[in-house]
């Protein structure tokens, strides 16, 4: 997801100026993605450069609205039609952290799992609390997405924990000794 496509989607509803775009963007993502006004104007400039929006004359209040162009509409339609690829998402730091915890001496992996579980559960509780307080459907769906993601993470942590219980690290294998003497090799193997 880019701010770029978010702004194009808002401009598809009709011309808007920077502050309106920021307010509507935050409304439609339930304020989970705060934008600063500088980001909005930088993005509008790039959209204008790429021919996806064009500026209208300033209104009486000195605000300059932008409207979406046909190229912008095509770009927006393409965005809606294209699934988000897993590879486009940031790498999962948690998975990497656990993999490293497992192979780093002296790390209590079960504690790493539980610390994460509590933190994720706390987030899930908070998303649920927000959902209880608000009946607005778009916002509820955004929260549901975060709730399901947290739930998936908790399930994965349970899975990791179960695997850990069964995991018995192999006794440290002796480093291979390069010894060319045939008799020694036979003794070692025997």
């Amino acid at each position: 997801m880019s701010i770029r496509h978010g702004l194009l989607a808002l401009l598809e509803r009709g011309p808007r100026y920077g502050y309106q775009l920021r307010a509507e963007f935050e409304d439609s993502t339930g304020a989970t993605w705060p934008l600063n006004i500088g980001q909005v104007y930088t993005t509008l400039n790039r959209l204008e450069r790429d021919g996806l929006v064009h500026p209208l004359p300033e209104n009486d209040g000195g605000q300059r609205p932008y409207e979406i162009t046909d190229t912008g509409r095509t770009e927006l339609a393409l965005w809606f039609a294209t699934p988000i690829a897993r590879a486009d998402r940031p790498r999962d730091e948690l998975a990497i952290k656990l993999a490293l915890a497992l192979t780093t001496p002296g790390v209590d992996v079960a504690a790493v799992v539980q610390t994460q579980r509590t933190a994720t559960m706390r987030a899930l509780q908070e998303y649920t609390r927000l959902k209880r307080a608000d009946a607005d459907l778009p916002w509820r769906l955004v929260l549901d997405a975060m709730i399901f993601q947290s739930e998936a993470e908790l399930r994965w942590l349970d899975h990791c924990e179960t695997a850990l219980v069964r995991f018995r690290p192999a006794p440290p294998a002796p480093l291979p000794v390069r010894d060319e003497t045939p008799s020694t090799t036979r003794e070692t193997q025997g």
Binding site: M121, Q125, Y127, T128, R132, S150
Partner: peptide
């Protein structure tokens, strides 16, 4: 169910 515990 973590999703249910979220109500707590």
């Amino acid at each position: 169910e973590a999703r249910h515990a979220g109500w707590a």
